Structure formats: structure tokens, C-alpha cells
Amino acid sequence: MNMRPSGKATPISTKSTPSASSTSRPQASGAKSALPTAVNAKTYRKAKFILKKIAQNQEEGILNVRDTDDRKKYEAIVAAFDSSKAAKSRVEAGKTNKRNRSRDDTSNAPKRSKDASGVSQPVAQGPLKYSDIVKDHLSVALIDESSNCGKPVLEKWPEIEVRLSGLAMESTLANPEGPIPRFDSEEVIRGHRVIRCEDEFSKEFLRRSITEISDAWLGLKLKLIPAKDIPTRPRARIWLPNMRMDRAKLLQYIAIMNPRVPMTNWSVLKFEDVKAVSQPVLFLITEESAKVLEELGCRIHFGVRHAKVKIFRGREPDDDNEGEEPPPE
């Protein structure tokens, strides 16, 4: 190809003349080259460049017998690239519209209850992360005020739930047209029963109900605190043999095997995913027992192994490689 044309018109000839097809593009073999199934950006830029030079040569009268075939070939490449780009843009636009529709679609949203004045009330959502629960002002924790501990509440929870459900039923049946208290009490955070209230009315109803039954159990005094004020207690991950274990029997066995470790207020938080030959178990422990475990080198006797213990203070252990295998000796 003439990169610097002479500017003089040259009659059409079958001889080879400097043109867009001489050095800047591949030599044609007579048969039309097959187009690539996918045109990349480099091929596209080359095709655009050659087409531009062919157009310049035509304007200056510098023509070549290959220009016609080459023009068709490279115009097809450009068209294929533009078509592919347009199709990709349409697909991306479709995905964006689908995401927007999914976000805006409320057809499957749960119906909201209404208070006596007809105002819609919020509906309790699905399970929340711990960080979300502690930020939710409608989430409260039930504790034993005398011990500032959640374990006695968990032990008595079936009875407590029956009393609270009875009060909620009595209130609703007495005033079916008025506000209705609704709750979700499935969450247990750091050994404390957490109750998520649907609205402010439900939260106030729960507060009054707990005050009414706070002294109903000997040695137990119920109290509500904001979920964000749940006492921070140490947790411990212990790598045990991969075997079926009942929680109560597990705690009892560990206590018998390790008499130096105070385990009065221990509870099992979670059986984590099995890793290799170990079953990581997450426990809620006390600062007193954490210190003893550290004195023992963070190991306890269990079965025929000296089980590795990892203690967590002030943060959630799930953020620290949940269930990782203990480091090798």
C-alpha cells in the first residue's frame, strides 16, 4: 500500500501497483478468505485501516484489481464486529432491565398488616446476620437480671414462650381490630434468646409482658435489653473427633474429662462443617474458663486425643476462617 501517494492519477491497470493491498494487508490467493468466526478488536482495527486506505487510493485514482475483493472482505469483517458488539450491548441491557425488574417487583412481597387507623405496619424479614440484629432497635434480648446471663433463660425458654404466647393471644382476641403484636424468637446470639419485634407496638407489648411474668420462676428474674447490649463473652472453637454428639452429654463429658476447667455457664453455639478428620464445635464460654484454657496451652482432653482449642474475644469467630483445621504441631 502507498503510505504516501504521489497525488497523480494513474489509469486502471492489471499490473501490480502500490495500493492498499501491497504490504499493509495479506496477499490474496484468488479465492475469498474465510472470515473468522469471532472478530477481535485487532482484526477490526486492521480492517478499518485498510478500508480507509482503499478509499483514499480511489479518490486519488490509485486503483488495484484486488481492491474490490478486499473491500468486500474487510467490510464484512467490520460489519461482523459491529453486529457482535450491538448484540452484546442488547444482552447487557436485558440483564440490567431484569435486575431492575427483580428489585422493583413487589408482587411476591409479604402483605403488611394494618393498625386500627389503616396504616401499614412493617413485616418481620428473614434471618439476619448478627451485625444486622445488633443494629436493629426492634431486636431485644431476654436475660436473667440476677446473673446477667442468658443460659437460665434458654433452659426455661419453652415455659417462658408458653406464657408469652398466652398473653399475646389474650390481647389479640380481646381487641382483634387493634394493633396485633408479632415477633420472631428463633435467634440465639452469644447464648442469649433474641426476640425481634415487628413494630414499636409489639416491642412495648413485650416489655409489659416480661414485666408481668419476670418473677414467675424461682431463682430467675427476666429482663429485656437491647440486642446491641448483649454481654460479650469469649467463645471457643474446639476440634473434636467426627462423631455424633448430643449437646448436653458433650458438655457433661468435657467437664468430667477436664475438671480444672470451670464449665458452669458453657453452652454449645454451633456444630460447624466437618473438616478432614475433625468436627469443629463452637462454644460460648466464660472469661474465667478462657484463662484456665490458656494456662493449659489451649488444649483439653477428649476421647483419645488432646483437642486443640482456639479462643475468641470481642469479635465473631465466623470472621476467622470458620472451621479451619488446627495448625500442625
Rank of each mutant, 00 (worst) to 15 (best):
M1V: 12
M3W: 13
K8Y: 13
A9Y: 11
P11N: 14
T17N: 11
S19T: 12
S22E: 05
S22T: 06
S22H: 04
Q27D: 04
Q27N: 06
S29L: 08
A34E: 15
A41W: 10
Q56Y: 07
N57D: 15
N57I: 01
E59Y: 03
E59T: 13
E60C: 01
G61Q: 03
L63D: 09
D69M: 10
D69Q: 14
D70K: 01
A76S: 02
V78M: 04
S83H: 02
V91M: 02
V91I: 06
E92I: 09
E92T: 12
T96H: 09
T96Q: 15
R103D: 07
D105Y: 10
T106K: 03
S117G: 05
S117M: 04
G118T: 11
Q121V: 13
Q121E: 14
V123I: 07
V123H: 05
P127V: 12
K129L: 07
H137W: 00
L138S: 10
V140W: 00
C149V: 00
C149M: 13
K151I: 14
P152E: 05
K156Q: 15
K156G: 06
I160S: 06
E161P: 00
V162Y: 03
G166V: 04
T172K: 03
L173Y: 06
P181K: 08
R182I: 13
E186I: 08
E187S: 13
R190A: 13
H192M: 15
V194A: 04
C197V: 04
E204V: 15
S209L: 02
I210M: 07
I210N: 05
E212I: 08
I213A: 02
S214C: 15
K223W: 02
L224P: 03
I225V: 05
P226C: 05
A227C: 10
I230G: 02
T232H: 12
P234I: 09
R235E: 11
A236P: 01
P241A: 03
M245Q: 05
M245A: 00
A248P: 00
Q252F: 15
I254S: 05
A255Q: 00
I256M: 14
P262V: 04
L269F: 05
K270V: 05
F271Q: 01
E272Y: 00
D273T: 11
V274C: 08
K275C: 14
S278Y: 06
P280N: 06
L282G: 01
F283K: 03
S289K: 10
K291V: 12
V292Y: 08
V292P: 10
E295S: 03
R299V: 15
I300V: 15
H301P: 07
R305K: 13
H306A: 09
A307Y: 03
V309R: 04
D318W: 08
D320E: 13
N321I: 07
E325F: 13
P328W: 01
P328I: 10
P328S: 09
E329R: 02
